[in-house]
Amino acid sequence: MQLEINNVSKSFGKKKVLENLSFEVNSGEIIGLVGENGAGKSSLLHILATISKADSGSIRLGKWIYGKNRKQLRRMVGFVPQDIALWEDMSVEENMLFFEKLSWINRSKIELKQLCEDMELLKWKESVHTLSGGMKRKLNMAISLIHNPGLLLLDEPTVGIDLRSKKEIAEYLKQTAQVDNKMIMYTSHDMDEIQSICDAVVCIGNDPFYENLLREANMKIISI
């Protein structure tokens, strides 16, 4: 499966955030989106998640075309929002069960528990409000993976969490990209993290600072 983005532009009022952006991503690849705040990283993720629409350009995921096959695309996309989107008064188990019931596919309780354990989220019975930031981030991600999406979009998934959780999330992302052949795109301001996880980087916003940083780190830049 391939994600093709061709000349995508997006503006909010007079402010252009994305201008003729084009690149391709293949299954099993992890792509980092970097750029300063407001450069349009989240806007691109939102467009790819079908939450908002590009002003111009075309996007295709496999055989499905953005703007035409919204329902099919939403089944294939997993979106991990920047804000923690969990029911705080429910346990990890209840959160997983809740979203499994509303999901496109049926998953057994054992499968759901395994999904959490794969990312070192072991507090199955504990209430979300008692979890650490890192654990909440992991659950935030696990819920987005319930329907087994081919494309996983993560909006700053490791912001504000401890190093161990960051490492565990990074390990999981690498593993799921390789083993499950998933396409992963995520935004982060942590260049070390980008460098250690990503196969390639999309630099958004034509910012020379980021471009130089990526070149110094010998990162493969697929679009500027």
Partner: peptide
């Protein structure tokens, strides 16, 4: 008003249907 509302976009039920 819960932050989870965004998740319904990727679910079988839309938030309105839910």
């Amino acid at each position: 008003n819960a932050t989870v509302r965004i998740r319904f976009i990727f679910n079988r039920f839309s938030f309105q249907q839910y």
